[in-house]
Simulated scan of single mutants.
Amino acid sequence: MEKKNYGLLAYILVCIIWGSTYLAIRVGVQSFPPFLFGGIRFITAGTAILLFGYFKKLEFPKEKIDYLKISVVGIFLLAMSNSLVLAAEMRVNSSTAALLIATIPIFMALIELFIPGGSRINLFGWIGMLIGFAGVGILSLSGGELDTDMIGIILLILAGFAWAAGSVYSKRTAFKGSIVVQIGVQMLSGGLLQTIMGIATGEAARLNPEPSGIWALLYLIMMGSLVGYTSYIYLINVWPISKAGTYAYINPIVAMFLGWLFLGEPVTARMIVSAAFILAGVLVVQKSRVVEKAEEKIEA
């Protein structure tokens, strides 16, 4: 299979799997304190990946500075962005979270505008982003009203920005070692920092998970982290960052479908219209021309 086809497969996996993780997170944080929930998830997944890399004799970085550079990605994507999502989903529902995290592609494109050598989408691509975001906006009103908890909304917007910043950094920085090892280091560093935050805020005393929370944690470790996160890191290394980020437009559709399939939630005409907008927006962005000013990654 060609790299292009692997990229498409990774994109599909991220769209479907991460669309389901908002529901799992919502279930999990009703049982686990948020930072330790994320910390346990990523320490477990990261350790498993690094053990796999070790026994498969994959290349590990040689210098401490290389581990530090890789850890920066884990700090932005997991310790910062994921922690903000976990905290926000204690205040807002999963649909609202999926909606606001859909700002990631716009943040990515905006960040790249201010970086020398950053990728540029043309006007056609920007129109596609606006169409997609309009569809997400329509979807957010499908339940009758939008969750208006302002603290939760602000946390989610900050989470989207942190994820976009970490993704752009990962795309533009050259890392040493196998990409599998890099993913393990990212998860382990992010998970360790989340755990430290959880202990520092007294979450250990509140750790008394219910079976539903444990199942949600296991799902997030296996699917959200080992499959979904690995696919995402691969994706942003083979696709332009502005196009890879459009997965965030698909996630709310997946959440809507799963709600109908497993919880019997109704699918309204408004939902169908929003799905059409979102898919059209993603198609436009994916077909738009992307100008790459610099092909080489930064060795810093």
Rank of each mutant, 00 (worst) to 15 (best):
M197K: 08
E296M: 13
A45D: 02
S167V: 08
Y11V: 15
N208Q: 12
F175I: 11
I236T: 10
I221H: 01
G191P: 00
N82W: 03
L188F: 03
K287A: 14
F257H: 07
Q194K: 01
K3R: 15
V168Q: 06
Y11C: 15
L23A: 07
L220W: 03
R26F: 10
W260P: 02
N122A: 04
S288F: 09
V85S: 03
G177R: 11
L68Q: 13
I43K: 05
I115N: 01
L156K: 06
I75N: 07
F37I: 06
T268F: 05
R270E: 07
S231F: 03
I65A: 14
L99A: 09
L141W: 13
A269H: 08
A45Y: 01
Y67L: 15
L77N: 02
F76P: 01
Y22F: 15
I121G: 00
F32E: 09
L283D: 07
E295Q: 14
S140K: 15
V181C: 12
L68D: 10
I241Y: 07
E299V: 14
M80E: 02
L146S: 06
S81R: 03
E63N: 11
L217K: 03
L146M: 12
R270N: 06
T173Y: 09
Y247P: 00
T103S: 14
Y229D: 05
L58M: 09
N5I: 15
G177E: 13
A275D: 04
V181R: 11
Y247V: 03
R26G: 10
F76A: 04
F257E: 09
K56M: 12
L8K: 12
F257R: 08
N208I: 11
S225C: 01
E203F: 09
F175C: 09
G144A: 11
R206K: 15
A276C: 11
F32K: 10
A216N: 02
L58W: 07
K4P: 11
Q182D: 10
G38I: 07
Q286S: 11
G7E: 10
L226Y: 00
G190R: 05
R26D: 10
C15Y: 15
K4H: 13
L263I: 09
V168N: 07
A98D: 05
L23R: 07
Y249T: 04
M80Y: 05
N82I: 06
L156A: 08
I138S: 12
A102C: 05
S20V: 08
G137L: 12
V72W: 11
A255Q: 06
A294Q: 12
L235P: 13
T246V: 05
W239M: 13
L78E: 06
S71W: 07
F107E: 05
S167Y: 10
F161W: 14
G191I: 01
M150D: 06
L188K: 03
F60V: 04
M271D: 03
P116Q: 00
K297S: 09
E299S: 14
P33N: 14
A300S: 15
P33T: 14
M187A: 01
R172G: 01
W239N: 10
R41L: 02
F35R: 08
S170P: 06
A134P: 06
N5E: 15
L261E: 04
W163Y: 14
T246F: 02
I253F: 03
N251P: 00
R26W: 10
I40D: 01
P61K: 06
I138T: 15
K57R: 11
L218E: 00
G264K: 08
I25P: 02
